[in-house]
Write a protein that binds this DNA or RNA. Structure first.
Length: 521
RNA sequence: GCGCCCGUAGCUCAAUUGGAUAGAGCACCUGCCUUCUAAGCAGGGGGUUGUGGGUUCGAUUCCCGCCGGGCGCACCA
């Protein structure tokens, strides 16, 4: 069980026992100032507010909670007290930290927890680019965020699957095939068709261009270290009659009606601004109409929670799909992470991207120029709701002093120490794992690693991992410059355990954000 | 016009979701390599958190107005 959860549970019990009240969502956080301890709760303020008519004073309340916590948490915490009236601070004991650090050093899977166990089946859908062209830098943002979220969920014990929805049906697909076919027959590409260079490349083959593009996309994602559990074809929904079936279901429920020759979904019943067309007057389904079927299918596959990552250009679409889903099933939880757009620049000049005109910079090009680690770090380190101006020249220039190397360097340094410490004698009496203030700070940081991963799943903000790793790497570099693990040909046993633990955490943390952990740099 | 998102150090971004003295990297200045990797470490300058109100013990965070930027308001996807 996570320490945060333990504290929360204990606090909840203490408050019920001592005051007979219930506080839900008890906050347990890390104080800014490390001298206050490892954990803080401000629950006393809330209890005080609840009991203000009964003559309790804030310090009395705090001191009673502290008393109760001391009894319940003596195994892990050496100091529990309160400050400034209601800030209750808890400090992990050195003995506990030493024991934990030793465990971490022997466990490459440290960071895993069972926090998400029993919390339902999750389907995470992201990228889902149209197979009408190569992936570009915008898709890369969703890919890096989605994959890191997925890794955090898995590590936190959730039952989660990732999925890429292939829009392999509809107008755009027809248009792309026509564009390629035109080139093959030596004709002009239709005005509203696709004009990118890759169209000519596709025309050289005899294969179905959609299939080829899909292969390109899969290759790019593999290079980007992004994995999907399932690739779901839109076309399969049409072919199996599932779209028609869903349409009929909505009709039976009285949720669609005919007007001006088209069929409309009554999304206003569920809070949308207006009703939306699901089937056009020419008999074809709209994207929305098919999407309802797709999401119904997700629900029927037994998922309780649907998380989608979309670009900000689709945010107006959230409400109507939400409406449709709640009309089918009210238990399923539907969440959309809206990511702001990525604008591309080269030497300060904006690069307009359009698949139609072929004016794009592909993910592959950027990968070739700046490398996977730099790009994944860059894209995951920024909160999804901030707009990104990505300058490819700037990214290359900065790559020398990119923070990602700071993290990797810490890992490589430790790897070096571990290599050099093999087969050399140990310093006598060097068993202490925490024998310096710097070691202690490191151990305290390591203790919070599983919670950081869980926090990513709760906030859906993977950039937190980059902040954590920078902190940890910084603590290690400080330790390294001040203390020696190998001294005069002999190794300090306890410190070797400590740096090994740091290595395991760095590696796992880098894995969460899809960055390699090199042994040598 | 209506809706969603953003505005924090010269630049790029954090801030554990309402907590204690708002932190990192880059850039700039000053030091540190005869022992484990200097892609590092130590120190310095740099802020009215766009702006004006409000809510409360407490606001970068929540609410309202204004300014600036992005995105959207289809029988397109």
């Amino acid at each position: 069980m996570l320490l945060k959860e333990k504290i929360r549970e204990a606090t909840d019990k203490v408050i019920t026992e001592k005051f007979g009240v219930n506080i839900d969502n008890i906050d347990v956080t890390y104080p800014d100032n490390p001298s206050f301890g490892d954990y803080t709760t401000t629950v006393a303020f809330r209890v005080s507010k609840l009991l203000k008519d009964k003559g309790y004073k804030l310090p009395d309340i705090s001191s009673k909670i502290v008393e109760g916590l001391k009894e319940k948490l003596k195994e892990e915490f050496s100091e529990i007290n309160f400050l400034n009236g209601g800030f209750i601070n808890l400090k992990l004991s050195k003995e506990y930290l030493s024991k934990l650090t030793e465990e971490i050093s022997e466990n490459e899977e440290y960071g895993k927890s069972d926090f998400g166990r029993g919390k339902g089946k999750i389907l995470l859908e992201y990228v889902s680019a149209n197979p009408t062209g190569p992936l570009h830098i915008g898709h890369a943002r969703w890919a890096s965020i989605g994959d890191s979220l997925y890794r955090a969920f898995i590590t936190s014990g959730y039952d989660i699957k990732s999925e890429f929805y292939i829009n392999d049906a509809g107008n755009q697909i027809t248009l792309l095939r026509e564009s390629v076919e035109a080139v093959r027959q030596g004709k002009e590409i239709p005005e509203n068709g696709y004009h990118g260079e890759y169209i000519y490349e596709l025309a050289k083959t005899k294969e179905d261009p959609i299939k080829v593009i899909l292969e390109w996309q899969k290759e790019d994602l593999t290079l980007f270290d992004v994995h999907f559990d399932n690739w779901f074809s839109e076309k399969s929904l049409h072919d199996s009659g599932y779209v028609d079936d869903t349409f009929n279901l909505l009709k039976e429920k009285g949720l669609i009606y005919e007007k001006d020759g088209a069929w409309w979904f009554k999304s206003t019943l569920f809070g949308d601004d207006k009703d939306r067309v699901v089937k056009r007057s020419n008999g074809e389904y709209t994207y929305f109409g098919v999407d309802i079927a797709y999401h119904r299918n997700k629900i029927e596959r037994g998922f309780d929670r649907l998380i989608n990552i979309w670009g900000a250009d689709h945010h107006g679409y959230v409400k109507r799909l939400e409406s449709a889903i709640s009309s089918i099933n009210t238990d399923v939880k539907f969440e959309v992470v809206i990511g702001q757009m990525v604008s591309l620049y080269r030497n300060g000049e904006p690069v307009r991207m359009s698949k139609r005109t072929g004016d794009i910079i592909t993910l592959r090009e950027v990968l070739d120029e700046v490398g996977k680690d730099v790009l994944r770090y860059y894209l995951v380190s920024k909160k999804v709701d901030t707009h990104i101006d990505f300058d490819i020249e700037e990214a290359k220039k900065q790559s020398e002093d990119n923070p990602v190397y700071y993290l990797q360097y810490a890992h490589a340094r430790i790897s070096g120490i571990l290599r050099n410490s093999q087969g050399i004698p140990e310093i006598e009496g060097s068993k202490d794992i925490i024998d310096t203030p710097e070691s202690e700070e490191i151990a305290r940081k390591l203790a919070k690693f599983p919670e950081e991963i869980v926090d990513i799943t709760l906030s859906l903000e993977p950039q937190r991992m980059t902040t954590y790793l920078l902190d940890l790497a910084s603590l290690f570099h400080k330790f390294y410059s001040k203390h020696r693990v190998i001294d005069n040909g002999k190794v300090h046993k306890g410190r070797r355990v400590l740096v090994k633990a740091v290595k395991n955490v760095l590696k796992k943390g880098l894995w969460i954000i899809g960055v390699n952990a090199p042994e040598v740099m």
